[in-house]
């Protein structure tokens, strides 16, 4: 058993708000420099760049998990982490079927949504308006993720926008979240994170990086027997001495 460092919420340029620097090879390089063992690529309502990041990380020792940040109908951001890219792709197809198609002016207002190869070459542009809310409620989103054996983690729970706190006023403690994500860099009302800690969900720390320099600014410390989706899942469930903490 040892401690692995993970940053489980990183955007690529497929997210309209992501920086052009967020290309597979540059993110992998930066994650290695930051001392991370495990990262998850989580674009808004999309997983189309996940495969390119996995390929870019091959042979580097960095493990890439297929992820996604889904916007629920309540405009809450929920991170889904998946055992493989096919599950992520299927969930992405489901949520995107509820999104409008971009028009000519969308990119200038929200940003380009770029599909890339591992080297960062442009393969195409996503046509669904990823910055919009899907029609899936919070509960439906959690089921959608977990039905594909994914981990459902409400994002940046103490932030003033797009969080369970901002949209619902509280963290629904009866819901089967696999963990909750805190952002040690976020502004927050005093005491809120401590309050949510008492709800008993495992807490992960993630950077929600949209720019290279943000990668690893918050991280999850994982006590486990390896850096992988399965070990992360076991650590969230505290199996056989495993566990998570954040920094």
């Amino acid at each position: 058993m040892k401690t692995y460092q993970a940053d489980l919420h990183i955007h690529s340029k497929l997210s309209p708000c992501g920086s052009w620097d967020m290309t597979p090879h540059r993110v992998v390089e930066r994650a290695k420099t930051a001392g991370l063992d495990l990262i998850a690529i989580c674009d808004h309502n999309a997983a189309g760049n996940v495969g390119a990041f996995m390929e870019a990380a091959e042979g580097t020792g960095l493990v890439v998990i297929a992820g996604m940040e889904i916007t629920t109908s309540e405009e809450i951001h929920v991170v889904g982490l998946f055992p493989d890219r096919e599950s992520a792709r299927d969930v992405a197809n489901s949520v995107q079927s509820t999104l409008p198609i971009t028009d000519a002016r969308y990119a200038s207002r929200f940003g380009e949504q770029v599909l890339m190869d591992p080297a960062g070459n442009i393969l195409g542009y996503e046509k669904h308006a990823l910055a919009m809310a899907t029609t899936f409620t919070l509960e439906e989103t959690v089921s959608l993720i977990q039905d594909r054996n994914g981990l459902a983690i409400p994002a940046h729970i103490e932030r003033p926008s797009f969080s369970v706190y901002s949209q619902l006023g509280d963290l629904p403690r009866w819901m089967p979240f696999d963990a909750v994500e805190v952002s040690p860099v976020a502004q927050r009302p005093i005491g809120l994170r401590e309050k949510f800690a008492r709800y008993g969900f495992p807490m992960v720390g993630s950077s929600d990086s949209h720019f290279l320099h943000e990668i690893g600014r918050a991280r999850t410390l994982m006590q486990a027997n390896g850096a992988s989706f399965r070990e992360l899942e076991a650590a969230l469930r505290k199996e056989e001495g495993r566990g998570v903490d954040y920094a």
């Binding site: 002016r105 969308y106 207002r109 929200f110 910055a131 926008s161 797009f162």
Partner: peptide
């Protein structure tokens, strides 16, 4: 009440 940056993008759209 929303003050997120996306308010402006949505308002323009």
């Amino acid at each position: 009440l929303q003050t997120h940056l996306n308010v402006i993008a949505v308002a323009a759209q």
